[in-house]
Design a protein around this nucleic acid. Sequence first.
RNA 1: GCCGUUGUGGCUCAGGGGUAGAGCAGCUCACUCGUAAUGAGCAGGUCGUCGGUUCGAUUCCGACCAACGGCUCCA
Length: 636
Amino acid sequence: MSVIAVKLPDGSSRSLPEGATVRDLAAAIGAGLAKAAIAGKVNGELVDVYAPLTDAAEVAIITDKSAEGLDIIRHSTSHLMAQAVKALFPAAKVTIGPSIETGFYYDFDVEQPFSPEDLEKIEEKMRELAKADIPIRREQLSKDDAIVLFKDMGEDYKVEIISDLDADTVSLYRQGDFVDLCRGPHLPSTSWCKAFKITSIAGAYWRGNENNRMLQRVYGTAFSDKKELDAYLERLEEAKRRDHRKLGRELDLFSFSDEVGAGFAIWHPKGALLRTIIEDFERKEHLKRDYDIVVGPQILKTELWQRSGHYENYRENMYFTEVDEQGFGIKPMNCLSHMMIYKSHLRSYRDLPLRFFELGTVHRHERAGVLHGLLRVRCFTQDDAHILCTPEQLDSEIKGVISFVNDVMGIFGFQYEMELSTRPDKSIGSDEDWERATNALLGALKDSGREFEINEGDGAFYGPKIDIKLRDCLDRRWQCATIQCDFTLPERFDLTYVDANGERKRPVMVHRVILGSIERFIGVLIEHFAGNFPVWLSPVQAMVMTVTDSQQPYAQQVYETLRGAGIRVQKDFRNEKLGFKIREAQLQKVPYMLVIGDREVETATVTPRFRDGSNLEPMKADSFAEFIIKESANHK
RNA sequence: GCCGUUGUGGCUCAGGGGUAGAGCAGCUCACUCGUAAUGAGCAGGUCGUCGGUUCGAUUCCGACCAACGGCUCCA
């Protein structure tokens, strides 16, 4: 019998008998590894443990410790779920079932949508099949044979997928009587699915196209062991506890009302104060960076929207009204008035760049099913700016915005990632303009030295964009900041400036937001801090509370001193037990509580108690005010 | 917009073909109290909206509205 030699990741090589598989290799290295091997990577390609090795191949063993291993576990678990569904509902047609970031899903075409009880049955069946330890084996078939096979089984979707494939042969995976078209690799057998849970069910269009039939998508998650699964489920619970819709109500920040209308938040005093703090911060930061604050109206004539292209491309998202037989569009974006401000003067190249900043409130008619708390609303305020500059200034302006984003994200304590989105199908403007704009963004991204991704066809209709996704403390990503190039609007509005030679030139425009929508940003902020806002953002920074009625006069003095110093302070002089007042302030997540008892009255001090239960040293009320002011200035 | 689930007092939830209950919050009274809930009493709902079935609907049926979980779309 001849012998082959394979190379391992550490550079060493191993001799194996011809026909040896990945599993054999793992066994040759050690019994522990053989037990942990769920797949292999041969010459950079993932394969099953049953895959035979070839001479001189570079081989790595994949275990459940790696991201690739987890991916395979999830993918195989989705197959296990499909097997269970076919066993319980033979009429169900299988479609696709990939692993995703948080687990996996499988889409089924069924006459009757699954009920919660069905899901329980499916999960139970999955356990049963996993326990049976059914081997999962790969088969290779010609395309035509595969089509016949799936046609005979009535799996029309699989037939469609295979027919679209550009290959002569396809691979199948068989586990018991269940067969699925799949590239693989998969786990050695079903018993390797050890820790999984079906999490939810939802409708999903076949191939993601809303004109197609709606399928039933069953979501689940899987991990290499129970402990990690439990940790994930606990994280879901934590996310639920932090849900900004729940905290928004509990902290009395905002609400929604049927009578007001879907997607329109109403801001209660504490929420409105939080907004104001953020908005004041933004004005200050923009003025620091040479932006000009501007303000435009809420509705503008329909003809203006026609001229800008919004009427053509964005009409279905806009609200329209009529006043004195004149049509108006409620603004879904702030750019138009900024354009008109630019046009109000003859501009020189010496004026540029011009940076117009507006905390602009916009209305967008979002489809009913997409609304979600503050994260997706129909009326929101953007920290919007339009930069008008010469083509030569474009690069440095974009870099300036990226650095602005970096500063602000640092202050709020968010990590972030950047993505470049290119020209979509529905768009306006010439190919040359698109290319120029895309290159400008690409150049700035490369210069930033940070990693970024490219989303083909994801740009706005008027230009390419950089999207910035911040990452919260639960590692979730949120789209907030965006930087969008626009060579089209200056053209449509015939914006010009006079260059050094006295010639009329066309400026370039950049739309950009830093926080994006104040609403969405606050939603993210609430969840990120679980409502425990840092002192500089807390709508109520301190609560003065008395032990008994007798301390009221002094407590009132403390309250007035702090109010006078600009501290956001409230008082609780109710005739309640101290424990009760502390509990309430604690639930309201107020950072500092100032308990005023006889001790404080006698020494004319306050003893600040932080919401984590720790105390500061007793101090005079004005020292406490200074302390809060200093903390706030440092964005603590 | 599409699929599924849900809709009972401010909040969390029970109930169910014969015109509704609990806890918390609210109000009143007593207690004057030192770091996460003092006690007692009172009040509060045309059971999401509009139709239909029925002697009778909050309960059954239908439509609409809204919320929730997704899909598609997006700041």
